[in-house]
C-alpha cells in the first residue's frame, strides 16, 4: 500500500506567498498554507527561502503594517519549519533568464524533488515547466491554479 506521505505532491511556495500566508488568516495564500498544514501537499523549504521570509518581516514598511516583535517572527518561522521540509540549500541553477534573483526558487524545487513551484511572479510563471535531465519536471503555477489542482485532487 502506498502511504499518504509518499503520494502527496512536493511543492516549493514562493516567499511572497509564504509571507502573505503568515499574516493573513484568509485568502488564497492562507488557504494554500492551511492545505500544507493538513498534509494535502508537502511544503519544501530551503535556507534561502527562509532567509527571504525572515528578512521580509523586518522590512520597515512591512513591519509598520504588521507589527510583530522578533519573538513573534521566530514563531512564524518555526511554524514554517514544523509544517515544511527543509533542504540543505546546496543547489545553484541558472534557469530563470528574465530574473536571475528567482533562480534560488527553482534550485530549491530541484533539490527538494518538488513537482511544483507556486508563485505569482510573472517572470517564473512564464517558464510554465522546468525540465532538467535526471529530475522530475517542475510545473510552475499561480497559487489559485495550484489550489484548483488540490481541489480536484490532481496535484
Amino acid at each position: 500500500m502506498i502511504s499518504r506521505a509518499s503520494r502527496v505532491a512536493r511543492v516549493v511556495v514562493d516567499t511572497n506567498v509564504l509571507l502573505r500566508a503568515a499574516v493573513s488568516p484568509a485568502g488564497p495564500a492562507a488557504r494554500l498554507y492551511a492545505s500544507a498544514k493538513r498534509g494535502d501537499f508537502r511544503l519544501v523549504l530551503s535556507p534561502h527561502l527562509l532567509r527571504e521570509v525572515r528578512a521580509g518581516f523586518f522590512k520597515p514598511h512591512f513591519r509598520s503594517r504588521y507589527p510583530v516583535v522578533p519573538r513573534e517572527i521566530a514563531i512564524f518561522l518555526a511554524e514554517l519549519l514544523v509544517v515544511g521540509e527543509l533542504v540543505a540549500g546546496a543547489f545553484e541553477v541558472d534557469l530563470v533568464p528574465k530574473d536571475p534573483k528567482d533562480n534560488p526558487i527553482v534550485a530549491s524545487a530541484l533539490e527538494g524533488d518538488a513537482g511544483y513551484v507556486v508563485t505569482n511572479d510573472g517572470d517564473i510563471l512564464t517558464l510554465e515547466v522546468v525540465r532538467v535531465a535526471g529530475y522530475r519536471p517542475i510545473r510552475i503555477l499561480s497559487d489559485l491554479k495550484f489550489l484548483d489542482l488540490l481541489r480536484h485532487g490532481t496535484a
Partner: peptide, 10 residues
C-alpha cells in the same frame, strides 16, 4: 493590500 505589502517587502 496584503499581497501588495508582501510583494514590496520581498
Amino acid at each position: 493590500v496584503i499581497k501588495r505589502d508582501a510583494d514590496a517587502a520581498i
